[in-house]
Simulated scan of single mutants.
Amino acid sequence: MKMMKRLGSVLVVVLLLAACTTTLRVASDFDKEGNFKSYKTYNFYDKGLEKLAVNGLDKKRMMAAVDAEMLAKGFTKADKPDLFVNLIVVKRERTDVYANGFGGPWGWRGGWGWGWGPGWGGGMYNVDRYEEGTFIIDFLDPKTKMHVWHGRGSGFNLDNFKNREERIAVGVKEILAQYPPQSN
């Protein structure tokens, strides 16, 4: 019986950790009157790149990922493009607390105070603090100077450096998968 409880506790911890692995939550919006078939060329919006709040390595990775996706969609990079691509990263502090469910034979005893024996064990908690980022990719029409498409992916752990290049590429791909928009 004790073994089943422990296995159950371990299973709960594994499921909680699996459920809490960060995946991007993507969404997009667009100009309902935009003619997206007319856009064939792109380039990055220089003023936006100057303000991009990430390190130089991540800026390079994001630009390379956007280049790869735009080329895959049939776009050509040009000096005088049909679309400007503006990149933005918004950061916020995130704290996740996980209860592992492991208690011991100690803890608060109803009406009897602290002690040993069966009761409500204290358990242990893991606290994970990190910066969470939201990647925003905007498409701007240089002729009208207006936004025509806005995509974002939120939930990127900016403090995790493991497989960072691949994670950025996958994140950009997930965001740009929503372009061109499907009109109703």
Rank of each mutant, 00 (worst) to 15 (best):
R152D: 09
E33R: 06
Q182G: 04
D58N: 15
F75K: 11
F36G: 03
F139K: 07
Y45V: 06
M62K: 02
K173Y: 02
V54N: 08
V148D: 02
F139Q: 01
A72T: 14
W112Q: 08
G117Y: 10
V97M: 10
A64G: 03
S154P: 01
F102H: 12
Y125P: 00
G115M: 11
L57M: 12
K77Q: 14
Y125A: 06
N126I: 01
G153E: 08
Q178L: 14
A19M: 12
R61E: 02
C20F: 14
N126F: 04
G122E: 11
F84G: 02
T134H: 07
G107T: 11
P181W: 04
Q178G: 01
A53S: 11
G153W: 12
E50S: 12
K37Y: 03
G117H: 15
N55I: 11
T23G: 14
M70Y: 00
K40S: 14
P118Y: 14
H147C: 00
N163D: 15
I136E: 02
T134W: 13
G107P: 10
S28L: 10
F44D: 01
K59M: 08
G104D: 06
K145H: 10
W114K: 02
F161V: 06
G111Y: 09
M3Y: 09
G56F: 15
P180R: 12
V170T: 11
V172K: 02
M62C: 02
F84Q: 04
W116H: 03
K173S: 08
N100F: 05
K73R: 14
R92T: 01
R94H: 08
K77V: 06
N160M: 14
F102P: 00
E165V: 12
G107I: 08
F161T: 04
A27R: 15
W108H: 06
G151E: 11
T41F: 09
G104K: 04
T134E: 11
F36W: 07
A169H: 14
H150W: 09
